[in-house]
């Protein structure tokens, strides 16, 4: 049987789907790839030009790194610096420049947020055979998620008072979450199979009554509970997997799932080619 992916619920940054007719290994790989192998962009290098806030440089830099940046179509829109012709010099094709310059001149406590991050034209135009990357970028690629969107609260970076200033220059790089958690597009991936424990992979600990003490989740509705007289099928394999993917906004939920599927399709091909 062919694998079936059935989407139960879909929002911009969240998707709930059921994957059927695949191996457990396959389903788990899907989960792992979603968590750690999808490239996104994030602030990777910060030059602190002025910091008179109460927070130390490295702490602000860390916070900047954690800001999710829009990474739509990351594969085509930007290169890894290590793959770039600029040889680690970081050019237009493998990096972007964000700046932040906020100074408080009034007697208030001012919030420095991700909205203050501005995209700057890259000074290094790169060398030879100009790539197409910059052209493929969407309008807000590399900008903080939710910037200029009145419905989304910006991310607080620090608070400053009168006379304090923060001026930084950030380099945005492409990367994957295996390297650092900031490049992970997903905040959590829920994963479940066999809600009724028919396969007896697990044993529920209970005091008096297993059924009464273990609440059934939403996914239990999708499957029939085992009947009293049903014999245990020890050959059965998990076949139906329930996913719930939530992203931090850098990639849309749709893109995450599509890209994962693409990745698998391409790697399968690779595997097929190798085997033949």
């Amino acid at each position: 049987m062919d694998p079936v992916l059935r989407i139960r619920e879909y929002q911009r940054d969240r998707v709930n789907f059921v994957l059927e007719n695949v191996d457990l290994a396959m389903a788990n790989s899907l989960r792992r790839v979603m968590m750690a192998d999808l490239p996104t962009v994030a602030i990777d290098l910060v030059v602190v030009e002025a910091n008179t806030t109460v927070l130390p440089d490295e702490f602000i830099v860390h916070r900047l790194g954690m800001v999710p940046l829009v990474s739509t179509n990351c594969d085509a829109a930007i290169r890894y610096t290590r793959d770039c012709n600029c040889e680690g010099e970081s050019c237009e094709f493998c990096s972007m420049i964000l700046t932040l310059h906020v100074k408080c001149n009034e007697s208030i406590t001012m919030d420095v947020t991700s909205n203050h991050l501005e995209l700057q034209p890259h000074p290094e135009k790169g060398i030879e055979e100009a790539g197409e990357e910059p052209v493929r970028r969407t309008e807000n690629f590399g900008l903080p998620v939710g910037k200029n969107d009145p419905d989304v609260d910006p991310i607080l970076i620090c608070k400053i008072r009168k006379g304090q200033e923060l001026k930084v220059k950030c380099q945005v790089k492409k990367g994957i979450a295996k390297e650092h958690a900031k490049w992970s597009p997903c905040s959590a991936v829920a994963f479940e199979y066999d809600p009724h424990n028919k396969l007896r992979h697990t044993s529920y600990w209970y005091e008096t009554d297993e059924k009464a003490e273990w609440p059934l989740g939403e996914n239990a509705r999708e499957e029939e509970p085992s009947r009293e007289d049903e014999l245990f099928d020890f050959n059965a394999k998990p076949n139906k997997f329930y996913f719930d993917v939530e992203t931090d906004g850098s990639l849309g939920a749709q893109e995450v799932v599509m890209k994962v599927c693409d990745t698998f399709a391409s790697s399968e091909n690779v595997a097929d080619e190798r085997s033949t």
């Binding site: 788990n28 792992r32 992979h201 697990t202 529920y204 003490e213 273990w214 609440p215």
Partner: peptide, 26 residues
């Protein structure tokens, strides 16, 4: 915990991150 949909004693079924298989114990 029960009201939040969890097991009364605070246990949860968990899965191995490497294989994706459910652990034998909660």
């Amino acid at each position: 915990l029960k009201a939040a949909g969890y097991n009364y004693y605070g246990n949860e079924p968990m899965y191995s991150g490497i294989t994706g298989q459910e652990f034998a114990a909660d």
